[in-house]
């Protein structure tokens, strides 16, 4: 048996399925415009989401800051009122003391 001759016949060149050049050229094409547009819209949507989320975070932070300021003002007012009442009571006590000594 002529193995080498049979190998030459068995391993002869075969053609690929038609259109190999087209399949290769298709892989070399840049992304079609539709995909580019879709990606642009995705980027815009992502930016909008970021703006909304960021805005929400800023607004919430501002509300918390104002609530804190209100609470601080109320606490100061309460302290001032309590101080005035203490001073009034001290004056009353001092008045009673001077009457008793006199």
């Amino acid at each position: 048996m002529h193995l080498e001759r049979n190998l030459e016949r068995a391993l002869h060149r075969a053609d690929p399925a038609p259109g190999l050049a087209d399949r290769v050229l298709k892989r070399l094409e840049p992304a079609p415009p539709r995909q580019v547009r879709a990606r642009r819209w995705q980027a815009v949507a992502a930016a909008l989401v970021l703006v909304v989320l960021g805005g929400g975070w800023v607004a919430r932070h501002e509300m918390e800051r104002r609530a804190g300021e209100r609470a601080r003002d109320q606490a100061l007012l309460a302290l001032r009122i309590a101080g005035a009442k203490v001073r009034f009571a001290q004056e009353q006590v001092r008045g009673i003391g001077s009457h008793t000594n006199g």
Partner: peptide
């Protein structure tokens, strides 16, 4: 380039096929 592929596709394809 497409003509180059047409000319050599059988060789490249067959090496991989075998």
């Amino acid at each position: 380039f497409s003509r180059l592929i047409d000319e050599h596709e059988a060789m490249v394809f067959s090496i991989a096929l075998h």
